[in-house]
Amino acid sequence: MTASAHILQKGSVTRVMLLVLACLLPGVLAYVWQFGWGIVINLAWASILALALEALALRLRSYPLKPFLADGSAVVTAWLLALSLPPLAPWWLTLVGMLFAIGVAKHLYGGLGQNIFNPAMIGFAVLIISFPAQMTQWAAPLSLAAQPLTFGESLGFIFGGGLPPGLGLDAVVSATPLDTLRTGLLQQHTLHEIQAASHVFGSVGGVGGEWVAAAYLAGGLILWALRIVPWQVPAAFLAGIWLTAGFLHWADAGRYAAPWFQIATPSAMLGAFFIATDPVTGATTPRGRLIFGLGAGFLTVIIRAFGGYPDGVAFAILLMNLCVPLIDAYTQPPVFGAAKKK
């Protein structure tokens, strides 16, 4: 009959989710600036899919639509997935990804707040396992592209697969720096040779990508300043990458990329500030968050260096999602006055 407290602070899940989206905007802008219009189309397409799929799932589970569509969590998932996919990914790739993200990873586990795994990362993992070819056709940075696609041409490519006449696929897509690195290493080239031979490498990270990473960092810092995300996860995640990559680079500079290069990838920054910080699937204790972040950073580099896929952020975070209950159980902070008891 009573529900204390009788007064509530202003704030809601919707506000949290909208702030996350707002803080992603710098990254999106940088993305458009460096890689063209494709990402905007895919963000919109993913958002539409997310809301439609969410509505469908809610209807099937006889949950009310309005409060759960308005909470914004589906759109956040959509953006995170779209930003992880190649900017010119075909429409059906996003569809399959969102189907798994919203349908399987979120609603089969009980919907908002109940999922064990980050939905966007489940969608990403399913896609990279099922469609490795499409997933590595990254849009070339505009500065390297022979002829940038216009908005209409991007739309046509994403939904029709057709390119303007006279333009080959190689003109619009290229491998990511991480992918280039991996292929080169498989061909027994040294790091130095690969970087000298390819033009996708920028001053710190990849051409274009390093700007996007910097924008994610900026947005992420705002998110932290607003106390939406705790400092522990991003800091530990980046530290995990830096330390692991640093050790490998120190051990064999010819094979393993420098730590700054690893951190300056868009996926690392997006993962650190926006994906690993997902409260639902992350650790909740301060020490637990440090362990969670460090583990995810460590696994990211390990997978990049020794795994079968060029990037490891998604798998690293999913693996750490799995460990969350254990981490939380063993990192409970002492309660007020607990120290004096013993």
Partner: peptide, 12 residues
């Protein structure tokens, strides 16, 4: 104290 009523589902 009673278990708080926490209705997420729509009442059919």
């Amino acid at each position: 104290w009673k278990y708080p009523v926490f209705k997420l589902k729509q009442v059919a």
